[in-house]
Structure formats: C-alpha cells, structure tokens
C-alpha cells in the first residue's frame, strides 16, 4: 500500500470532520478452501468477491462517516501478513482499539499506535485466531468432521 497517499487521504478525511466508524479486516481465504456445507450456487460464483483475492492476503477497510449526510467513505487495501500498516491514531484517537484488535486477532503489524496494548487486549487462547493458517485449519477440521459425520450417517442408513 502507498503509505504516504494513504495517510494524506486519512488526514483529509480528518480535516473534513469525518468520524472513524470502523476499521475492518477480512481474512481472504481462497474459494477453493473447504467451507462448511460448501455448495456454491451458480449465480453466486460469478460475483464472488473472494475471487479477486490473492492467496494469503487480508482485506483491510477503513470506514469514515460523515455526520451531516450520513455517508460512508471507505479506503480499502489488500495487505500481506508481513506488511506494516501505518496507524491512523494520530488523526483519529479512537483508532487505537481497532488497531490493537487487528494486531491481535489478524496478526497484522500496525506501526505507531498511540496506546499500544502490546497484544494484551484479548489474550486469546488461539493466538492470532484469524490468521490464514488458523482459519484454514479450522475449516479443514470442520470439513473433515462433516465428512466423517456424513459417512457415518450414510453407513448407518445403509445398514438400516
């Protein structure tokens, strides 16, 4: 991501008096990954958002809100796990919670948070629960379990 341009744009939003409404990260798991009950319907596959995803990337979105006309402005970037993301807490003081959270849950490195909780916000049992590895592992385990259950069901039905 273009750090300078990004910060300039954030600064502009700040000047306009927008509020920070959300910083959201989505773990982009390739559609090929097994999902629970994955039966993608024909119509859906065409417009699937996940298709554009490069492997092992995160989609990060900063959402800014305008009180006057209630519009949302978004900055959307795709970043890799090793990328360093500039903190916007300098402009929006409230950003620190989001940024600490995405560091802890997604393993993204955010630089320059004004109140850095150093990974002490949630202290989750699964470290970095939304990293690609963690998500894939969960989905695979789930698929295996579903398959096993289906198989067991099939065998019992066959026996019956």
């Amino acid at each position: 991501m273009d750090r300078e341009a990004f910060l300039a744009r954030v600064g502009e939003y700040h000047k306009e008096g927008r509020r920070l409404a959300l910083i959201n990260v989505t773990t982009l798991v390739p559609a090929a990954a097994p999902a629970h009950g994955a039966k993608p319907e024909a119509a859906a596959t065409e417009a699937s958002v996940g298709e554009t995803a490069a492997p092992d990337q995160f989609e990060i979105t900063w959402v800014f809100e305008n009180d006057k006309d209630a519009t949302l402005e978004k900055i959307r970037e795709q970043v890799g796990p090793a990328d360093i993301i500039p903190s916007i807490s300098e402009f929006f003081g409230a950003a620190f919670l989001y940024e600490n959270e995405i560091h802890e849950l997604f393993g993204l490195n955010v630089e320059g948070i004004n109140l850095d909780l150093q990974g002490q916000l949630y202290k989750t049992a699964t470290k970095v629960p939304f990293s690609h590895a963690a998500v894939k592992a969960r989905l695979e385990a789930l698929a295996a379990k579903t398959a096993a259950a289906a198989e067991a069901k099939a065998t019992t039905e066959a026996k019956a």
Binding site: H36, A38, A44, V49, G50
Partner: peptide, 8 residues
C-alpha cells in the same frame, strides 16, 4: 460469498 456461511 454465496455459500451458506458468511465470509465475514
């Protein structure tokens, strides 16, 4: 993403 499970 078109599956029964939401992506996010």
């Amino acid at each position: 993403n078109g599956t029964k499970n939401l992506e996010r």
